[in-house]
Amino acid sequence: MKIRKRTFGLALYCGLLMLPIYWMLNMSLRTNADILGHFAFYPKDATLMNYINIFTDKAWYSGYINSIIYVSINTLISLATALPAAYAFSRYRFLGDKHMFFWLLTNRMAPAAVFALPFFQLYSTVALIDTHIAVALAHCLFNVPLAVWILEGFMSGIPREIDETAFIDGYGFPRFFVTIFIPLIRAGVGVTAFFCFMFSWVELLFARTLTTTNAKPIAATMTRTVSATGLDWGLLAAAGVLTIVPGALVIWFVRNHLAKGFALGRV
């Protein structure tokens, strides 16, 4: 009986969670006149007009590719640098380790709005403005510390005897790390990659500041469409739905990985 109550609560919560997204999807399949004309729980004459409008506009399609490129670069950089660092934090005591850790975290705390201008100047100085790498690097500011934090948790769950045995067997550190250790925390790497992807995908302020045309992200393209079309709710909703799709695809493909990572349970 108790179990059933829990399941019911969970189902209710998940339903409520989907409701706003469903509503946007509903709006995106109707014309603006239809939306303003009468209230409907589902689209009676579903139309793909809004989507067609968007896809005939080249700005959209490139916005997607730009976002995906810089998000991927960011995830790769974050993982590549965070893996050894997390190993150091989980295995060693060294001078200033705790301070270093806390300093990394403080980088999430800076109000981005004011840092936008110095950021723009800095990346202009190194001639990276309007490149994917600039956005990827800027997003490292908040993703790398998080990646270190999460990976450190997974690594601490692996007993140190494994390291010791491998070193006695004559493995050097790089070979041990790549061939033995990383496969052990594979699921943890998956979970970390998911979080990096997520925070980089949803961030807008840095991405918009550091790009003009060539690397403009999808979410920024959307704000432009909004201002250009005024209050076309259908188009706006369709644009919104399209920004969710890549994230939804990623989560769908990594779902088993994610479940396995959480089963390891050392976030």
Partner: peptide, 9 residues
Amino acid sequence: LPLLIPWNV
């Protein structure tokens, strides 16, 4: 899913 939606969206 909600976590993967850009913040302005």
